[in-house]
Amino acid sequence: MIGEEDYDHLYKLVLVGDATVGKTHILSRYIKGTLPKAPTATIGVEFATRTVSLDAGCAVKAQIWDTAGQERYRAITSAHYRRAVGALLVYDITKPATFKSCQRWMEELRSNAEPDIVIMLVGNKVDLAEKNPGDRQVDFDAAADFASQQGLLFEEASAVTGANIKLCFDKLLKEIYNTTQHRRDREDDPTNNFQLQGRSSQTECAC
């Protein structure tokens, strides 16, 4: 366990997706390990932080902004995309409309957040499909295809059982680390742009 304030990098993340896909549940599961006591619609934005250590030993503090999913709230939540380096874009695998919206959410993130924002696509509520396979309305493969076409990370998860929740954040943070490290290296060594870009991202998480 590392101290909350003992970190090497601070990353701003946003949680986006349609209303009722489970964004706040995912955050609560990740931060507190439990589901919200009184689950309710998020009004505007909510905020949480968690400091984690990446594989290579460096600590990053994730500053996570949970946003209201209702369309109308974008007028006040999209301001929070600014300077975000990562996003969890969540849909509900039992509701195709929430998956369809991901295209629009993604475009909005890319136009308002940092240009190289790392986006993790998360198909939430897999527990429902495990209980009753007929509930699944979005194929794993269809979502995985979409993710690879758009350059998104992808996982299916369940905030209710906790399955893959930590994994989603870990993979996202690691990828952000690699991306920003990349950028830092380029900035540190402007004469040597192209060689650095060729390095494998796997070897870069070493503080």
């Binding site: 209303a19 009722t20 006591k37 009184a38 689950p39 309710t40 619609a41 209702q70």
Partner: peptide, 15 residues
């Protein structure tokens, strides 16, 4: 649909 979803969870907040 949104109203139905919200109505169920409103009174949890109101205890």
């Amino acid at each position: 649909p949104l109203i139905e979803k919200d109505s169920a969870r409103t009174f949890l907040v109101l205890s």
